[in-house]
């Protein structure tokens, strides 16, 4: 070994820490531990109740192994049909109403006051969870699919509007300038400058949205807004787990079919 190698032997290495300052590192660790201690206490796990519940868990598991599709056959059928029709209506109208809001919410093709107005609508629509919306609409319009359809129309507008208006804003200014320069009117600008650039995305989003709407239609029934969820709620309320199992299986299969069809169509389009 020569002297240069000897010097090299002394060099050590350890992996640099994610956070340089040791103080900060320990403070964060400490805070996380404190949080965990306090947070866990809020759960109030009732062991006694869970042990009693385990019997029911077995009962349920047993029921799920023998789902009963027949006893409440007509209710299940009605519920599914309602979910599907709600999906059809809410998706069609949602897409239709989403178009003007989307155009308005794209900064590069709309005047500022319109832009702010439409953005505002989108923010409000998007921040309201479907279930909360469904509760409000059920109170306003009464129980049944009408409230559900309205809920999902609002949710569709928020969803399509946000994503599609961002796509429109990504269209290059040059493209739009070129069409404006030919003296095209605003509708012509939309048809020749905007639509060709976002049409495939629009169709893709619409199909994805139909899939999403169907999923929502299975759950808003729990708060009275129609669809298969209401039938499930009733079955659970009566402790009729065999029927509940059957409904769950139906939901899973339909959601899967919806997802498969939706992704198959979108793949063919792109």
């Amino acid at each position: 070994m020569n002297s240069e190698n000897q010097a090299v032997e002394e060099r050590t290495w350890s992996k640099p820490k994610l956070i340089d300052s040791a103080f900060l590192r320990w403070t964060i660790t400490f805070l996380v531990i404190i949080y965990i201690i306090f947070a866990v206490r809020s759960f109030e796990i009732n062991v006694d109740r869970i042990i009693r519940g385990l019997d029911r868990a077995w009962e349920m598991l047993y029921a799920f192994l023998q789902p009963d599709f027949l006893a409440r056959q007509s209710h299940i059928f009605q519920g599914v049909l309602e979910s599907i029709t709600m999906t059809v209506v809410a998706t069609s109208l949602g897409i239709l109403f989403a178009i003007p809001v989307t155009l308005g919410a794209a900064k590069n093709i709309s005047p500022l006051p319109v832009y702010y107005f439409c953005r505002g609508i989108l923010v409000v629509f998007r921040s309201l969870h479907v279930v909360i919306l469904a509760i409000l609409f059920v109170i306003m319009f009464g129980f049944g699919p009408f409230a559900g359809v309205l809920t999902m129309i609002i949710n569709s507008i928020g969803f399509i509007g946000k994503l599609l208006s961002e796509d429109i804003e990504n269209i290059s200014d040059e493209t739009l300038e070129a069409i404006r320069a030919t003296g095209a009117s605003w509708p012509q600008l939309i048809i020749y400058g905007v639509w060709p650039q976002v049409s495939s995305r629009f169709i893709g989003l619409s199909i994805y949205r139909a899939d999403m709407t169907f999923r929502q239609s299975t759950v808003i029934g729990l708060v009275g807004a129609g669809g298969i969820g209401a039938v499930l709620d009733t079955a659970m309320g009566r402790y009729d787990f065999n029927t509940a199992a059957a409904i769950l299986i139906v939901i899973i299969i339909l959601v899967l079919i919806g997802e498969y069809v939706s992704s198959a169509i979108r793949r063919r389009l792109t």
Partner: peptide, 28 residues
């Protein structure tokens, strides 16, 4: 994965509440 994804969390809650009783733990 498919079963978990296809059923909304509200529906899962409905089922779990039956087992562990209503409350934060069921929601979690």
């Amino acid at each position: 994965i498919v079963t978990s994804r296809s059923v909304n969390s509200l529906i899962w809650a409905l089922i779990i509440v039956q087992v562990v009783g209503p409350g934060l733990f069921a929601g979690m």
